[in-house]
Design a protein around this nucleic acid. Sequence first.
DNA 1: TCCTCTAACACTTTTGAATCGC
DNA 2: AGCGATTCAAAAGTGTTAGAGG
Length: 377
Amino acid sequence: MQHISESKLYLSMPRSPPAADSYQQGCIRMTLENADLWKSFHSIGTEMIITKHGRRMFPHCSISLSGLQPFANYVIMIDMVPADSFKYKWKKEQWEVAGKSEPQPPCRTYMHPDSPAPGCHWMKQSLSFLKMKLTNNTLDQHGHIILHSMHRYYPRFHITQADSPYTVRWGPFQNFSFPETTFTAVTAYQNPKITKLKIDHNPFAKGFREGGTHSHSKRCRSNRSPPAKRAALDRKSLCNSHPDLQRMPSPSQPAEAGKDHASTQQPLKGGNLSAVEQDPSESLHAEPLELHEYDYSCEEQMVPASVPYQPYRSLEYARYPLPSNDVDAAHNLVHPPPHPLATAEHNPQQHGYYHHSHHHSHAADWSQYPLFSYSCW
DNA sequence: TCCTCTAACACTTTTGAATCGC
DNA sequence: AGCGATTCAAAAGTGTTAGAGG
């Protein structure tokens, strides 16, 4: 796949695996697919629509994995991490800080519908989180990921060895994230450049691109039944990225200038993130994400194949137990504690939020926090 | 007044059941 | 009867935009 990043980031060596990892070997490597598309959006300032009933991401999260144990079962999940502690507003064609972030909504985790599956399955082809949906409805009952509008997030992937979704809570997590997947959650697009880019790449938007005029007659639309039958697992489609995703973004996009730099950038360290994250109140105003300073070296990441078990994590899970005898019950709402990044302790002026991806200690720390998987579509 | 959110809209793509042919 | 390929209608998805609401 042409969009797989060629750059690599190697992290610390694996530690001794837990007992279950009897033939633990090497490192798990995660690669972001359609990375070029993500970069194109990121260079402008990615916006993701969130709606009451849930909206898919575009670009969607698609990854490939290697380094897993072929016959060990893994559960792979994704959640959304606050990128900083600010709320934003779109003013005069640029993003500005509009104050401190609001209290974080219930933290939810989306589990890949193939989970659990053996390592050979995950490594056979890329994984798509196409069907994951984002919502701003804090009372959402469908298991969609709940976000605040006008706040920034980035997806975080979790891999853990587990034979069932209900044993996940006892296993060590490994976390991955990709800086270029950071986005601002919005209820309506703010930046017209984002709109154009989405229309150019998202096939579902063709109706608006080619339809031309809008009829605003308020005729009633027939109510559509919920996708109950869609709940049947469609593995075939999960790993097929849409042809449009393969297309390169328009070279006329200013993003290209920064992208050309990517291969020559220095390895991403904690402080060399875009200036945006270091001082949002000032640097957000010009180019939304200052990508010409940006380094893409972490599109492919390696982390220790095993994160040390955190004894007190089980206490966290004990406080927020998952049902253990009913698959549907896994969709019950759970309200875990706020994400660590959402705490006041996190200050983007002091360190970039990408740190955790590159420092083992951070990855391990984050793995202490509970994950809840009750959403598969 | 400003900002954010919601819902209706037209159109495309995806999905899956039904049908057909071997 | 069983299987794979094809067809097609329904469902799901998209961004836009007027209007509501805080």
